[in-house]
Amino acid sequence: MFATLYIIAAPSGAGKTSLVKALVGRDNRVMVSVSHTTRAPREGEVDGGDYNFTTPETFRQMVEAGQFLEHAQVFDNFYGTSREWVEQRLAEGTDVILEIDWQGARLVREAFAEAVGIFILPPSRQALEARLRGRGQDSKEIIARRMRDAISEISHYDEFDYLIVNDDFDTALGELASVILARRQRLEVQKSVHQAMITDLLA
């Protein structure tokens, strides 16, 4: 199996979701895992597309059945990654991205030691707060809580393999794509893909 499982984490407001969406839009060999969540859909979100929306009771039943690769509480809601879905995509040769927090990342690495971790940072506290306020969705109290949670999330940046600062979006996207490309150029991967050509060259 030469597909890679990527764990991409970031504090809320760092631009992780936008970067991942742009990456998937230009690379058809990578997919984003659609998490299960107990939170209510936001305007424009599609069940099964953005998230698999479920009830707290159903979520608990899935946890008890061992159906999640990882699951965690984020703010007041629960999120989980389907173990079966991820394993199927990797077996098919498709790279998979998990957008999860540092807690989930630890759990995933217990099951997939070869998973690659990428952490996205904002360029400054000021920029992070400005992005959170710019959404226009949350009250001052919620923004303050998100800022506290963001600092806590950032404190775990050194548990990841790669670090990308999202100051300029296009630059950050290019750096993210470069990590994916470099993984695909590993000797073991290219040797498997081009074995016939290599054999012919050496004949």
Rank of each mutant, 00 (worst) to 15 (best):
Q88R: 12
V116S: 06
Q73W: 01
L23A: 09
R133I: 05
A91T: 07
S35N: 08
Y6I: 08
H156T: 10
A91I: 01
N52G: 00
G15I: 00
D170N: 11
F78E: 07
E129C: 00
L181M: 07
R184N: 13
R135L: 09
Q67C: 05
W102P: 00
R29C: 07
H156E: 06
A144D: 15
M197D: 00
R60D: 02
I180H: 15
T94P: 00
S124D: 01
D167L: 09
A40D: 04
F59L: 05
Q126P: 00
A203R: 14
R186E: 15
D167N: 11
L121H: 14
V165R: 15
A9V: 00
D158H: 12
R131E: 09
L187C: 03
R184C: 05
F2E: 09
I151S: 05
T55M: 05
M1L: 07
E159W: 05
L69W: 08
R89S: 04
S18T: 14
G174W: 02
T17N: 11
A144R: 12
T37E: 04
S139A: 04
G136Q: 10
L107N: 06
Q61P: 00
D27E: 12
L128P: 08
N166L: 05
E129M: 07
K21P: 00
D50M: 06
Q88E: 15
E175T: 04
L187I: 03
L5V: 04
V165S: 08
V24Q: 01
S152P: 00
E141V: 11
E188Q: 12
D168V: 14
P56N: 11
R146Q: 13
L5I: 04
L90M: 05
L187D: 11
N77D: 15
V179Y: 11
I164K: 08
D27F: 12
